[in-house]
Design a protein around this nucleic acid. Structure first.
Length: 581
RNA sequence: GGCUCCUUAGCUCAACUGGAUAGAGCAGCCGACUUCUAAUCGGCAGGUUGAGGGUUCGAGUCCUUCAGGGGCCGCCA
């Protein structure tokens, strides 16, 4: 159990004894009692709001409760002193031994330090990327990919059973367009001259697909009507695109557990079944939608459509699931797909969309709520767009001008670690500026190198220590006493490390992996600060030439720092550096 | 027009889902390299959290009105 929870448990225990002693009324709701690090470290190591939260229902002034609680807590070994402050905060200063003991704990648990049981092994489905299988992934997909993968890693670390899933949009007309485009490249490979007209994909990446199609079928598809080849080419082309996309993802170290084909929903009654389920809840009806107000829609005319009553679950208007010609809208397979996820018994669903799909959030949430009778938790995270810059100048992307930046371009230029880290240094719903020069700049401007440098410095100390003939192995370090690790700057680091398990849980609960990146930056900062203090205060250097036992303690301490940096970077999907070059 | 996300220091962003005197980095100014790699550190300065109202012990955070910006808005997925 991490230190904050431990102290919280103490607080709750004492509150309960106060109830037993008749100093507090029974039946109080203590769920909102929290123990947190205060913003201002001068206030102490931890603060609890217990008195303020309980005073109203207990009908006792907050200060009175706080003072009582303070007296009781100060009897505990781990509490150095406790003080009532402000409107009724109770500030606790924790005994230095508890911070030193954290280091032992970290070394003992290693990469499991911070791992949490929060998720109770609940099954979570994280769906992300899900780009149309019509071409390589571009920069917008990259952010969704990195975010989804880091969130998945984070949730795993927090005790969830995570499935990474990709929804292949292979059922719509865009794959016909793809097939026709590949057919043109095929004809080209057969020696014909071709023209890419409006409504086809002219990208070079289809050239090898056309060639391999020719290798497969020879000249058989030449001069044949579309009916003859379209089915085969469609499958051939989408398979090729998915291979391409999987390769793109692999460049970032991302591997999906499941690829779910939209097409597989058709023909087997899956869509009908999902709609039937909604129908049984009286949520499907035939009707005519009003024209959207304030926005002119050319050639608008009222059409009779089959509609899903999404307004019954918080949407603004009901949504069509069947077009006037009787064909499904894209929303219908989406409903069926989420129904399928529910039927696969996931406890929670998470979808990651680009911000341009923000308009679909309400209807998807309505659908999942209706289909699962509100039983399946469903969160949709939107990733805002990435703005590219080169030397401070915005980079205009245009497919036609060929200045279209793909995921591969990006990773080729800056590498996977930098791409991943930078994409995670911003909240998902904030736009992200990505400057090709800046992200490669090796300075503290650049959080990637800043954190990497901290880990490299630790490795460097290890190398120096080894050269100096200082022996230290993992087992021994676990049992270090740390009684000489007492300086403010050192304890500050121990405190920071103690926050790690809490931070993991908060990040997992809020589905916000960026918090990990910010935390690592702060930890690195505390470490660099301590390092530089060694310039002035010799005692703070990690290698103490004439004091092997002290050096050993310090090795163990920075080893604990390295453990947390490594775990944090692992969640982000970034390799810790052993040296800078 | 509707929905949605956003607006915090000159700039780029945090703020532990409601806690105390709102924090970092950059840019600016001052200072630290004979070192465990200065790819770093210390200090100074910088704020009516877009504006108003509300909820309560307490609001950057929740509700509401307004202003500004991004995204989306029936037979494209």
């Amino acid at each position: 159990m991490d230190l904050f929870n431990k102290v919280k448990q103490h607080v709750l225990d004492e509150l309960n004894s106060m109830v037993t002693a008749g100093e507090l009324p029974s039946g109080l709701d203590m769920t909102s009692v929290s123990v947190e690090p205060p913003r201002d470290p001068l206030h102490g190591d931890m603060a609890t709001n217990a008195a303020m939260v309980l005073s109203k229902s207990a009908k006792i002034s907050p200060r009175k409760i706080a003072e009582n609680l303070a007296n009781r807590l100060s009897n505990l070994d781990i509490v150095e002193n406790s003080q009532v402050a402000g409107p009724g905060f109770l500030n606790l200063r924790i005994n230095i031994k508890a911070w030193q003991a954290i280091l032992n704990r970290i070394l003992e648990l290693g990469s499991d330090y911070g791992r949490s049981g929060l998720g109770e092994n609940l099954r979570v489905n994280v769906e992300f990327v899900s780009a149309n299988p019509t071409g390589p992934l571009h920069i917008g997909h990259t952010r969704g990919a990195v975010f989804g993968d880091a969130l998945s890693k984070l949730l795993s670390f927090a005790g969830y059973n995570v499935t990474r899933e990709y929804y292949i949009n292979d059922g719509g007309s865009q794959v016909d367009t793809l097939a026709r485009s590949v057919y043109l490249r095929y004809l080209e490979a057969c020696g014909q001259e071709v023209v890419f007209e409006e409504g086809t994909y002219p990208g070079d990446y289809l050239v090898p697909v056309g060639q391999s199609l020719k290798e497969k079928v020879g000249y058989d598809y030449m001069d044949k009507p579309e009916d003859y080849w379209i089915n085969d080419v469609r499958k051939f082309a989408t398979d090729a695109m998915m291979t391409l996309i999987k390769g793109d993802l692999a460049v970032l170290g991302i591997h999906m557990d499941t690829f779910f084909s939209e097409k597989s929903l058709y023909g087997g009654g899956k869509i009908e079944k999902a709609i039937e389920s909604l129908k049984s809840k009286n949520l499907i009806y035939d009707g005519i939608l009003d024209s959207p107000k304030g926005k002119k829609v050319e050639d608008w005319e009222p059409r009779n459509q089959t509609l899903f009553k999404s307004t019954s679950h918080g949407d603004d208007v009901d949504r069509p699931i069947k077009k006037s010609d009787g064909a499904w809208t894209y929303f219908a397979p989406d409903i069926a797909y989420h129904f399928d996820k529910i039927e696969r018994n996931f406890d929670q669903l998470i979808d990651i969309f680009g911000a341009d799909h923000g308009g679909y959030v309400k209807r998807m949430k309505a659908a999942v709520a209706a289909l699962s009778d509100d039983k399946v938790k469903f969160d949709i995270k939107l990733t805002q767009l990435v703005r590219l810059f080169e030397r401070g100048e915005p980079l205009k992307m245009s497919k036609r001008a060929g200045t279209f930046i793909t995921l591969r371009d990006l990773v080729d230029q800056v590498g996977s670690d930098v791409t991943r880290f930078v994409m995670l240094t911003r909240k998902n719903d904030a736009p992200l500026d990505f400057d090709f020069e800046k992200v490669l700049e090796q300075s503290k401007d650049n959080p990637v190198y800043y954190v990497q440098y901290a880990s490299a410095r630790i490795h460097s100390v290890f190398r120096k220590a080894k050269e100096a003939g200082i022996q230290f192995d993992q087992k021994q370090m676990q049992n270090a006493t740390f009684c000489n690790i007492t300086h403010e700057a050192e304890i500050k680091i121990a405190k920071k490390l103690a926050e790690w398990p809490r931070l993991v849980e908060i990040s997992a609960k809020t589905h916000e992996p960026h918090r990990i990146a910010f935390y690592l930056y702060e930890l690195a900062s505390d470490f660099h600060s301590l390092w530089n203090k060694g310039n002035e205060i010799e005692k703070l250097r990690f290698i103490q030439e004439n004091d092997q036992p002290l050096t050993f303690e310090k090795m163990a301490m920075i080893s604990a720092v390295l453990v947390v940096i490594s775990s944090g970077l692992a969640i982000l999907g970034v390799e810790p550096a052993t040296e800078m070059n």
